[in-house]
């Protein structure tokens, strides 16, 4: 269903083919939404890429957590890494830092065709919609990001909430002056708040 939303939202920005290709080769929901949002604002390729990469950075620590549960050589390990999507990774966690890699792959495999096919459906549905604003579709992007925040990221506690507020303030303050896409990227500087807290412990 999220894939359908992505297709509907991306179609006016990218046309019919590009969102489908993006879902097939990137296969990372929040990054696809983020870079599409930046492109929709006229942010250009570099800002869109940086926004997408920043959101996907979370796969680095997720992969590190997964690593001790993996066997085999680098290629095999890298292949398991590609099966990391948020939901499967979380479901494959067995506690105390252990993961069930086969379970994760099993959970991801059906998600891939569903994600790509959903995008196809959304793109063609989006093509039929003549006035997206009358249907309130412009509220979908920010609502999706807010849902991700509330449903996941803010559970990181007070620091995460403070960082989110700081990031929002930075982005709002910069947006009248900076080129599109740039305020969002600058907001990530708020994450540096994480530094002194850890050192103090």
């Amino acid at each position: 269903m999220l894939a359908i939303s992505f297709g509907v939202l991306a179609e006016p920005v990218m046309g019919v083919a590009a969102p489908i290709v993006m879902s097939a080769v990137v296969f990372a929901g929040s990054a696809q939404f983020a870079s599409t949002a930046v492109l929709a604002d006229g942010g250009g390729a570099i800002a869109a890429i940086v926004a997408g990469i920043l959101l996907n950075l979370r796969y680095a620590p997720m992969g590190i957590a997964l690593a001790p549960s993996l066997r085999g050589g680098p290629r095999r390990r890298a292949a398991y890494g590609q099966a990391m999507i948020d939901a499967s990774w979380a479901m494959a966690s067995r506690g105390e830092g252990r993961f069930d890699p086969s379970f994760m792959v099993g959970a991801t495999l059906p998600s891939y065709p569903a994600w790509v096919l959903g995008t196809v459906v959304g793109v063609f549905a989006g093509d039929l919609i003549s006035d997206p604003e009358a249907l309130g579709l412009d509220a979908l992007f920010p609502a999706f990001f807010l849902a991700l925040l509330i449903g996941g990221e803010l559970r990181g506690g007070r620091t995460a909430i403070a960082v989110a507020l700081l990031g929002a303030a930075v982005a709002l303050a910069l947006s009248p002056f900076a080129p599109p896409g740039v305020p969002v990227i600058c907001a990530c500087v708020a994450a540096l708040v994480g530094l002194p807290g850890r050192k103090a412990r």
């Binding site: 929040s30 959101l55 979370r58 680095a60 807010l146 990221e153 990181g156 960082v163 990031g167 990530c188």
Partner: peptide, 13 residues
């Protein structure tokens, strides 16, 4: 790294 996502998502919102 863990705090990049909340900052970026809030800015996008």
């Amino acid at each position: 790294i863990a705090l990049v996502a909340p900052a970026l998502l809030a800015a996008l919102v």
